[in-house]
């Protein structure tokens, strides 16, 4: 059983501000039923930029309900300017703490708030992809921007931390190398620049072939094998890589990336960013 604080228990037992506001000035929805939690936030704001009412609907566990309730309680009666400064840590503080594994619930609350405020300012918010950068974790649809922000705001150090706060890396795990890269980059910027330069240098044909083979053996195959899949390198012709694939990313529940995309993404990451993968059936 989770070690929830009394405040969390109180708020999931008797959440405040449940429901919707029919004439809301802004409605923001984050998360999805696939991931196991989702939050829809409704705000009513007056002419002086004061949030006069906030309501929510949540699909999620005890701490998700409590975080949603906490968020609405924290913002009602406040000026939008003030509310902009709220972070997920403030939500956690309000709750008297959350178990590490449940930190993502507070992040979801904050995400909804941020999205709502952006919409309010008339910034067009499209779902995930375009607005908030590249999707790093396909299982949970977590973007680069979100991960970096959460790392900075919560001073995260390990991949497990990232998983606890954002869920990224918590399913198939194929994004973990990327999460490690992001952690490294956030810890020391120069390191990242060096890496990018390195990959930008044009490769000789032989070197490229070597790198493709190494990446398939050391990076891609282990990922696929975790899921009973496998890969065979059939041919390399310039930047065209021909592979045969077996099995499916069965663990990756929401994976909208096909295996081919995964292989291509990895090769682009490790070898050259314009590699094209062809699947031989």
């Amino acid at each position: 059983m989770w070690d929830y604080t009394d405040k969390v228990k109180e708020l999931y037992t008797n959440p405040k501000n449940v429901g919707k506001i029919d004439d809301a000035d802004v409605v923001a929805e984050v998360g999805s039923i696939v991931c196991g939690d989702a939050l829809k936030l409704y705000l009513k704001i007056d002419d002086n930029d004061i949030i006069t009412d906030a309501k929510f609907e949540t699909f999620g566990c005890g701490s998700a309900i409590a975080s949603s309730s906490a968020l609405t309680e924290m913002i009602v009666g406040k000026n939008v300017k003030e509310v902009e400064k709220i972070t997920n840590q403030d939500i956690v503080k309000y709750l008297g703490g959350l178990p590490e594994e449940k930190m993502h619930c507070s992040v979801m609350g904050h995400e909804a708030l941020e999205k709502a405020l952006k919409q309010l300012k008339g910034e067009k918010v499209e779902d995930h992809v375009d607005e908030e950068g590249e999707i790093i974790c396909h299982c949970f649809g977590v973007t680069d921007d979100l991960i970096r922000r959460v790392i900075r705001e919560n001073n995260l150090k390990t991949v497990e931390d990232i998983t606890n706060y954002t869920k990224a890396g918590g399913a198939c795990g194929s994004c973990i190398p990327k999460l490690e890269d992001i952690l490294e980059e956030e810890a020391a910027k120069p390191a990242s620049d060096k890496k990018k330069e390195e990959t930008k240098k044009p490769l000789t044909n032989i070197r490229r072939m070597q790198l493709v083979e190494e990446t398939i053996t050391n990076v891609i195959r282990p990922i696929l094998q975790e899921d009973r899949g496998d890969i065979e390198l059939v041919d390399i012709d310039g930047k065209n890589v021909y592979v045969a694939l077996r099995g499916s990313c069965s663990n990756c529940m929401v994976s909208n990336v096909t295996l081919k995309n995964l292989v291509e993404a990895k090769l682009r990451e490790y070898v050259e960013n314009d590699i094209v993968v062809h699947e031989i059936k």
Binding site: G36, C61, G170, S250, N251
Partner: peptide, 16 residues
Amino acid sequence: GSACSSGSLEPSHVLR
């Protein structure tokens, strides 16, 4: 078998 109750982030491997 929910993800949240197990702490594994994914719903039960059996149901999946």
